[in-house]
Design a binder for these strands. Structure first.
Lengths: 209, 209
DNA sequence: GCCAGTCAGTAACAAAAGTTACATAAAGCT
DNA sequence: AGCTTTATGTAACTTTTGTTACTGACTGGC
């Protein structure tokens, strides 16, 4: 347990803080596809991601969905911070993209450490900043890019997060995450294949360059 | 000077902190249209908005622009916080929507207060949270709404910020902020007028309901 | 092997948004 | 008044995206 903590956070936190974390944290494993946070849920603990990847997405009132960004090792969810500190409901959904594990910190401790450890403060703020930047990127994608570019970005992101050039998703799943329709995704993917950028198979898409 | 500070922030900060702020803050007036922060600029001071409204927008590499949200009395710019604390360049542009004034806080002080005042910590975090929510709203607008809805939202936002049902903008200006073209804005506005929702005049748009 | 369910390809069409081009109207200037 | 600039209206057309409908191909269970 503590080993993973050190591996993921040893370079950001002083050892005293690592000890404090290890003392109070509840470690939790999750499997691919697990829904970790649902929209509207109250959050009373702050998760530190030890390993694995988590997908953060937003939902429309009606039925649309949109991928915002991925969390990886060493990340925490700033949205969760927001909920913890503000005691409000979650505005996003978190689903495990791969299996992995988190350390859950009681909210009282996280506030206490804000006063005590500068490294903790820095971590919390840099998390916010990182998330803010990712949201800006999401906004740029939506505002300034067409669907074909968004799709290609999506494939690259996915490839980075899973560590593989082979993306194991159906066109329908991709369509959900980009908030478009399956037919559009198929169409654009076919165009990418014709351009020699991807190779399509049933259930998988291989990034060629 | 201090009066405005108390009026805008008296209910959030204890009087000791207000005094500290008054002691070190540099007060600054700005006029409508002033560009307060440009993209890429480094920021060494944290602005507390005393009164007026500030428009925060994002720019594409090529030539697009997009309104993100407005700041009003009692707000600070979380993006600025991010820049100060992370010592990075601004990712957004801030332009005065109305005339107004700000108190500029040296970055050293703002960090010092983070350790000392809980009310300051709460303020900083709730600013982040507020901004995060506004970004989510911006994302929802882009991802889930069509241009006619976005336009109507824009008009309502603008009306709220300026405190008037008459919006003094040309169609071209609106097109910039929504990252679309003037013709599209004119077309949609005309449709809104036909539906009895607005009244169009040269340089102004009147919201009827 | 047969069947049901899932996945992808494609055509044909509709809607939304973007583009080009031009006309007219208002405002400002001399 | 006459001229120029700016703002808006509108038509015609293109591109992008979304929708519906149908096809065949693959997969897993029996």
């Amino acid at each position: 347990m503590k080993k993973g903590l050190i591996k993921a956070y040893g370079s950001v936190f002083e050892s005293q803080l690592i000890n404090d974390i290890a003392a109070v944290a509840v470690f939790m494993d999750f499997a691919e596809g697990d829904c970790l946070i649902e929209i509207g849920q109250y959050i009373r603990q702050m998760p530190l991601l030890i390993n694995g990847a988590i997908k953060i997405s937003r939902e429309d009132k009606v039925e649309g969905e949109l991928l915002l960004y991925f969390l990886e090792k060493g990340d925490t969810c700033a949205m969760t911070l927001a909920c913890c500190l503000g005691d409000t409901q979650s505005e996003i959904r978190a689903v495990a993209e791969t299996s992995g594990s988190v350390a859950m910190i009681p909210i009282g401790k996280m506030e206490e450490w804000l006063g005590r450890y500068k490294s903790w403060r820095n971590f919390v703020f840099s998390s916010y900043n990182k998330r803010m930047s990712e949201m800006l990127i999401a906004i740029d994608n939506l505002a300034f890019m067409k669907m074909d570019e968004r799709l290609l970005n999506y494939l690259h992101e996915k490839s980075k997060v899973t560590g593989s050039y082979v993306i194991s998703n159906t066109h329908q799943e991709i369509a959900y995450e980009l908030n478009t329709s399956r037919v559009v995704v198929s169409r654009l993917l076919k165009a990418l294949e014709n351009d020699g950028i991807v190779k399509l198979n049933r259930n998988t898409i291989e990034l060629l360059k």
